[in-house]
């Protein structure tokens, strides 16, 4: 398709387009003014550091993120093992893949319905439970694709040499899944940390997570500290993505 330069041009512009808003935010974070460019400054980063509301939200997000990552990774790995190495009913298969198809707004409002109806208080825990439910589906997806590629004969060899089922899973299957599990855990953390929709439905006063806080700040456009925060988040995101890329490619060679 060498002749169609205009097609490719659109393509290149599209790739730039993907980074346009990100670039704008980063640039604005160093702007000493609020709207128009008034000179380079780190003032917003300083203000950011002393913003307690954001700090609280960040802590909530980290709590939710870490706890839900731990449990959704465990749950997701177990689900992946059942899906690939045992026989499961169609119902089970449908059930565990539901979160992948359902829009997050439905996940959010249905979880809210459940919690209120059983009088479960809306707090860090309600958000965490909802997050575990949908993040685990993604963990299961990532881990099961790797698990399906493993040589079954290796597990058979382990049993042949005397290992029980439990010893085989712990000593032979899990080590081979190491890369996929790490990548899945990072994905799970990112999904939880970045989630706005589900957290806005299932959170209560005092359990505001960072995206929820950011949302109100963006909506009302009040403080440019957002730009500084966004830049930091963007850098953190690139780092995690790079880590996953390295871990995942290593997982492929082994």
């Amino acid at each position: 398709m060498a002749k169609l330069w205009y097609i490719k041009l659109i393509g290149y512009f599209a790739l730039l387009f993907l980074y346009l808003p990100i670039a704008v935010v980063i640039v604005m974070s160093f702007n000493s003014g609020r709207r128009e460019w008034e000179g380079f400054s780190l003032i917003w980063y300083q203000r950011l550091a002393s913003n307690t509301m954001l700090a609280d939200a960040l802590i909530n997000s980290l709590k939710v993120g870490l706890i839900s990552t731990v449990f959704s990774t465990i749950l997701g790995v177990i689900v992946a093992y059942y899906l690939i190495r045992t026989r499961v009913s169609k119902f089970f298969k449908m059930l565990v893949s539901l979160p992948l198809y359902i829009p997050d707004i439905v996940l959010g409002l249905s979880s809210l319905s459940l919690f209120v109806l059983i009088s479960f208080p809306l707090s860090i825990w309600s958000i965490t439970l909802a997050h575990i439910t949908f993040c685990s589906a993604f963990v299961a997806l990532v881990v099961s694709s790797k698990l399906a590629l493993l040589d079954k004969k290796v597990e058979l060899a382990a049993k042949d040499l005397g290992a029980t089922d439990r010893q085989t899973i712990i000593g032979v299957v899990l080590p081979q899944l190491k890369g996929a599990i790490i990548a899945a855990a990072l994905l799970s953390f990112t999904l939880s940390f970045d989630d706005y929709v589900v957290a806005s439905f299932t959170g209560g006063p005092g359990s505001t997570t960072l995206p929820v806080r950011i949302y109100s700040l963006v909506k009302f456009g009040v403080t440019p500290e957002i730009n500084a925060l966004s830049t930091i988040l963007f850098i953190a995101a690139i780092s995690i993505a790079l880590i996953v890329a390295r871990v995942d490619s290593k997982a492929f060679t082994r």
Binding site: P21, I226, N227, F234, A237
Partner: peptide, 23 residues
């Protein structure tokens, strides 16, 4: 290039929308 397309996924989407708000 694929990595470049996927990278924005890893950033908070509220942040990206905010960038558009400015623009």
């Amino acid at each position: 290039l694929l990595f470049l397309v996927i990278l924005p996924f890893w950033t908070n989407f509220l942040v990206r929308i905010y960038g558009w708000k400015i623009i």
